[in-house]
C-alpha cells in the first residue's frame, strides 16, 4: 500500500515548527509531527494514519543535541543530562558523552529493534508514539527522567512516569512537541538492570522490565513494560529490594507485586512478566 495524500513541511527551527503545528491544529486538527518516521511511516503506508499534513522535525538543530554537564558550553546543570527529541537511537547507542554515567541509556538504545531502525528512529518520536512495548517509555520511567514539552504557551516539564497515559496516548496536546529528555546522572554506586523477552531479535517484547537503584540519591525503581498500557512501576517491591537487598527478590514477591499492580493478566503473561522483572532486577545485584 501507498500512503494517502498529505502535505509535507520541514520547518527549519523550533519556533516555526511549533507555530506550524499550532496553526494546523487550530484549523483542522490533522497535522502530525514526524521525526525518524519509523512508526509513523508504516502507519502512513498502511493508511492507518491519514494526517492532512506531516511536519518533519528531523532537521531542527535544536532537537538534535546531546548534552551533559561535561559538554562544552552546556547549559545543562551539574548532575543532569539532556537529549534532544530528534536524536536517534543509534546516536545514543554510539554516544561518547557520559549521559547517565552508568551506561544505561546506551544499553537501552542498543537493544531497540535493529540497527536500520535505530539509525532513523528517535527518542522523542518513540516517547510520543507511546507504543506500550517500546523501550524508552519503560527505561526513562525507571530512570526518573523528565520530558521537556514545548507548545505555543511555552515550555513545561513532565516526569517520564506521567508522560504516557496509556497505549498510544500521552499528555501531549495537539499543538505540543517534545523538545528534549532530561535526566539525572547516576552515582558510582548506582546499578541497573534491563530485560526483554522477545520472540526474535528486534521484535517488540512479550514482556519487559527495567530496574534502576541509586542508593546515593535514594532512587529505587522497578518498572514493568509491554503490558498493553503505560509501563507500571512496582514501588513497594522496589522499596523492599532497596531496603532488604536480594532476599526481597523472590518469585513469589515479584508475582504478588505484579498482580497487585496489574490486573487482567493470564497465566502465561504473568509468567513472562515475572520472569522479565526477576531477570532485570537480579542484574542489579550481579553487576
Amino acid at each position: 500500500m501507498k500512503a494517502a495524500r498529505f502535505a509535507y513541511e520541514r520547518p527549519a527551527d523550533l519556533s516555526s515548527a511549533v507555530r506550524a503545528l499550532g496553526e494546523y491544529a487550530a484549523a483542522s486538527g490533522d497535522a502530525k509531527p514526524m521525526a525518524g518516521g519509523q512508526s509513523l511511516g508504516p502507519m502512513l503506508n498502511l493508511r492507518l494514519a491519514r494526517p492532512g499534513r506531516v511536519i518533519d522535525l528531523s532537521r531542527i538543530a535544536a532537537l538534535r543535541c546531546i548534552e551533559s554537564a561535561a559538554t562544552s558550553a552546556s547549559v545543562v546543570p551539574d548532575g543532569r543530562w539532556r537529549i534532544g527529541a530528534a536524536v536517534t537511537h543509534a546516536e545514543i547507542e554510539d554516544s561518547p558523552a557520559p549521559l547517565d554515567g552508568r551506561g544505561f541509556l546506551r544499553h537501552v538504545a542498543s537493544g531497540i529493534a535493529y540497527r536500520a531502525v535505530r539509525n532513523r528512529g528517535t527518542i522523542g518520536g518513540s516517547l510520543a508514539h507511546a507504543d506500550p512495548a517500546a523501550d524508552w517509555p519503560l527505561a526513562l520511567n525507571a530512570l526518573g527522567a523528565q520530558v521537556c514539552i514545548l507548545g505555543p504557551g511555552g515550555r513545561r516539564d513532565v516526569s517520564a512516569a506521567d508522560f504516557m497515559r496509556a497505549g498510544f496516548s500521552t499528555v501531549l496536546a495537539d499543538d505540543e512537541i517534545i523538545e528534549a529528555i532530561d535526566g539525572p546522572v547516576l552515582s558510582a554506586e548506582a546499578r541497573w538492570g534491563y530485560w526483554k523477552i522477545c520472540r526474535k531479535t528486534g521484535e517488540f517484547p512479550e514482556a519487559s522490565a527495567a530496574a534502576v537503584f541509586d542508593p546515593v540519591r535514594g532512587h529505587a525503581r522497578i518498572v514493568a513494560g509491554a503490558l498493553g498500557t503505560a509501563p507500571v512501576a512496582l514501588e513497594g517491591l522496589a522499596e523492599a529490594v532497596a531496603r532488604l537487598g536480594s532476599v526481597a527478590l523472590t518469585t513469589h514477591a515479584v508475582d504478588q507485586a505484579l498482580v497487585d499492580a496489574v490486573s487482567g493478566l493470564d497465566a502465561v503473561e504473568r509468567k513472562l512478566h515475572v520472569t522479565a522483572l526477576l531477570r532485570a532486577t537480579r542484574q542489579v545485584f550481579e553487576s
Binding site: 535493529y114 526474535k200 531479535t201 517488540f204
Partner: peptide
C-alpha cells in the same frame, strides 16, 4: 497482516 505480526526468523535466529 504485517511483518510486525507475522514473525519470520532473521539472521540472529
Amino acid at each position: 497482516s504485517t511483518l510486525a505480526d507475522y514473525t519470520l526468523p532473521g539472521a540472529t535466529e
